[in-house]
Nucleic acid binder design. Structure first.
Lengths: 211, 211, 211, 211
DNA sequence: AATGAATGAGGGTTCATTCAT
DNA sequence: CATGAATGAACCCTCATTCAT
């Protein structure tokens, strides 16, 4: 007779919705689909959520707050600039792998919200992007060249690099299977190395990095 | 009284649909939206296309065929392995910038088709991915290590690197404005450099990075 | 800790419901609206009332019983036929002004009930109409002409006159504000005079009417 | 094979909707009810009307425009002040009797609209009320007493009298059956006499009224 | 070659009501 | 007494699509 408490029910709803949104896409998902997937009644879901878009919003907001907090924590422990970036990548991909649905929804349904809800999410996103862009900028801060020479100086513009890295990482919802042969940690190592030292091959750096 | 020929009308429909799909998303776009945007009548569009999903299919198919052909041509002219990859990047981003809508639709609506149409598109996609993966594999082919040792050898697995690069590049539909301060060519240079030599800068910089 | 007794709670519910019904209309009012307006919980209201339509029924029944009783009392004190009609008008409008919500609900939601409940209300209504029709019939009963000659005799058919007078009076829920410049008593005087002596002006008749 | 033209279909929809709204009330009427009553499909109605509330609006607007125009025409032909009022009454009730459904909807659903649509209707209503109030004011304009002494002068305030008269007339949707024993013309005569000379009986006044 | 008119299916949401606690 | 939680039924409306013309 142990009835399930309110919070757990809501959590169940959010998790299931995230999964279905990830599978079918937000717009292609019906509230009836969610009812079926959660085992709740159609009307019953409206006791927990105001509507379909609030559902999406809650999923995105919670997810963003978690990655944001986690990233900050992960980065804090690191020693040098390069390690901070590596830690960021490790955390992002680790979180992605363990929250595949939510992260896919975050990545793929960025424009499915609107109005104040979209604003709130975008504000969170900006903070997250800023965090990574800062880390990347620091990669070359100890050097001598000024940052304002994007293509010549050797290092590309930090913002563009950040967007590039996010692209690499977020795109995995397209092809990556965390339960496949490549573990999230391995994937993170690949990406960290790729991002920091490039694909053209730079054996010594890799050896030194000890990743 | 020169009536516009069939092909031009179809082209107009496809181009407009691509734009609207890119703006609003495939599922959120109404056939009425397309009628309004094209200036055609709702029923009139069905003379040119079988339905909404064929519209999406045609957009994606044509787009893929074009990038595929273009990429092959661009790569053919190049000298060494690294230049081939660079050429690929330049072409992909150049094409992306000049076909923003179609490429966004290609990137974002990968799962919006189904059945045989999805199969056809996926087959094209596979060929395109394979092309890039091959180029990347060649980057390290001159060396001695076997490809099958992903993490140890220094260079990451070519398929993963390819997916990473595609992520970097396709993700731009999320943030990049071809009419903004960064030209597609500049962007391509950034990304090529980033992908080939990494964000940590040249070899010495890597050492300085203290990994 | 003095808990509010049952009757008071019910009364509160009925009064509030009358107000909300009057404001928004019966059909447009939600049980949730009533919960909010009363401060009770949604389910809690069902302890006092069987459902939304019983709520409407109770409001209408009580209200009708009160006007009916009040009208009988008011009429009883009067001297002549004209004064009885005047007293009826004064009472009806006075009661209307002090029970605006309930009377509006009575007037406007006459058809919102159905079945036996509607029958009961209609029976009360008929008695009330009959009462006024009788008073009006008596207005000319002292004269010589038979009642059955509606348009020739000078006086219109009493039932029609009664309906006309009710129309005049009940219609006020549409425009009248008891807290405005015209007091209910003044309004009643206007209407009594208007009904008895007409708008064309007939000072002597007013004097005769004994207002 | 004679297909019914667009306008006739719309007219049919509006007329049927008016009838059903009059019978069941606006809020209690479902679009499915209307589909059934019109013989159209549920979705088909939306080709002619934007939605349920536009349906109500169109019914009310057309009806108001018609009564307004008709009343102006009817009044124009009249000789003296009393005759103008009589003509107004005759027209209003005649129109009411021949457009029972629409006029009931007009009377009963005055608050069922909202926003700009309600504003437009209210503007029409104000013009109509103003018209009658003016006619009534003229009833005593030839006399000597100033209009500003409502209760003393013999004649009641014209606006209140107008509202009273409208109440009498509009209330008929509550009880009057145009196909019953009392013809609309007879009803109009009753009401005109009642309004002008009162129910207390004043034969001479009727003669003076010039009926 | 083109479209006005029409529709079945289904979408998100709300409502009055219940019932275990 | 009172209510949090839940639900079946229904509501308004939209959509992709068709077909007679």
């Amino acid at each position: 007779m142990a009835t399930i408490p309110y919070d757990e029910r809501l959590e169940h709803l959010l998790a299931t919705a995230a999964r279905v949104f990830a599978d079918q896409g937000y717009h292609a998902t019906t509230m009836r689909d969610l009812a079926r997937a959660t085992g709740m009644s159609l009307a019953g879901m409206y006791y927990y959520v105001q509507g379909k878009d609030q559902l999406l919003f809650l999923i995105q907001e919670r997810c963003f707050q978690q990655v944001l907090a986690g990233a900050n924590a992960a980065v804090a422990e690191a020693a040098g600039p390069a390690e901070r970036v590596t830690r960021f990548i490790q955390h992002h991909l680790g979180f992605f792998a363990s929250h595949m649905s939510e992260m896919k929804v975050l990545s793929h349904e960025a424009k499915s919200l609107s109005g104040p809800r979209l604003d709130r999410i975008n504000r969170l996103k900006r903070r997250y992007v800023e965090l990574l862009a800062g880390l990347i900028a620091d990669l070359g801060a100890d050097g001598d060249e000024p940052r304002s020479a994007p293509e010549r100086g050797g290092r590309p513009d930090p913002r563009i690099a950040a967007y590039g890295l996010f692209g690499m990482m977020n795109w995995i919802y397209t092809w990556y299977d965390p339960k496949g042969p490549v573990s999230p940690e391995t994937l993170a190592d690949h990406f960290a190395q790729l991002f920091l030292t490039g694909a053209a091959g730079n054996p010594s750096a890799v050896a030194q990095g000890g990743l």
